[in-house]
């Protein structure tokens, strides 16, 4: 097998590989043709590294990228929330918006619970502090962070299950259409046919709208399909 070579890019500042060529994906390289491993050793498109927040693009239910949401965020004021239940794409949207902010020249920092004082990005550019899992923060931690953000004119963007009373940028929900868009994206380089709408609907309902869990179930589905195609040796 000839070596597979291509250019692959990394979003500037995020150090996270993004494939430019559909043939080779960072950390998921071309198939091995080692006979001992069977006819190739393809990767599972539903593996955690491929579906975790930041790995998947945030797609609107129409399948289009959410390029306008960053613009809307800029118009909302000093703080905004992304509201939604578990596995509805909130963290994915946060990563998308953080990347958009960096591309626009903003300084971005991710705040962790208990480390609000260290969260503020440095520099003179427009600054953004991103908080994932905002409902887990104590009131005291919030007050400290909001106070520092106000003093430094830093904007806040939070993902939360519970309404913080902030302007809502996006209310994340999972529909079958959303699941179809995400699964089609994950299987775009695979010969595997897409799961049926009925199958996806069942998965979304079984997992109470948690797309993350539905994708984990599709990990098993993909493995079982691949194993059923592997000839006996």
């Amino acid at each position: 097998m000839s070596p597979s070579t291509c250019w692959q890019g990394i979003e500037e500042g995020r150090r996270k590989p993004v494939a430019l060529s559909p043939k080779v994906v960072p950390l998921s390289p071309a198939r091995s043709t080692n006979a001992a491993l069977g006819a190739g050793a393809p990767h599972n498109p539903f593996a955690s590294a491929r579906v975790q927040p930041g790995a998947l693009p945030f797609l609107l239910p129409t399948g289009q990228p959410a390029t306008h949401l960053f613009r809307e965020f800029c118009e909302l004021g000093s703080r905004a929330q992304v509201l939604g239940p578990h596995g509805s794409g909130k963290s994915t949207l946060l990563h998308h918006l953080a990347a958009e902010a960096r591309r626009s020249g903003w300084r971005v920092a991710w705040a962790q619970q208990g480390k609000a004082s260290e969260a503020l990005p440095s520099g003179r550019q427009q600054r953004l502090v991103v908080v994932d899992g905002a409902e887990q923060w104590s009131a005291r931690t919030w007050r400290r962070l909001e106070s520092r953000c106000a003093r430094t004119d830093s904007r806040l963007l939070a993902a939360t299950h519970a309404d913080l009373g902030w302007p809502t940028l996006w209310h994340a929900t999972v529909t079958v259409e959303t699941a179809q868009q995400v699964v089609a994206h994950l299987l775009r380089d695979e010969a595997t046919p897409l799961p049926s709408e009925t199958h996806l609907r069942t998965l979304v309902e079984q997992h109470n709208g948690n797309l993350r869990l539905a994708l984990f179930a599709l990990y098993d589905w993909f493995e079982q399909r691949r194993q059923s195609k592997t000839p006996d040796t």
């Binding site: 070596p3 597979s4 070579t5 291509c6 250019w7 692959q8 890019g9 990394i10 979003e11 500037e12 150090r15 590989p17 080779v24 960072p26 950390l27 390289p29 071309a30 091995s32 080692n34 001992a36 491993l37």
Partner: peptide, 13 residues
């Protein structure tokens, strides 16, 4: 410009 990566897989058996 952006960083580039070239990955070549192999097996340890």
């Amino acid at each position: 410009g952006q960083d580039v990566l070239v990955d070549e897989p192999f097996n340890v058996l």
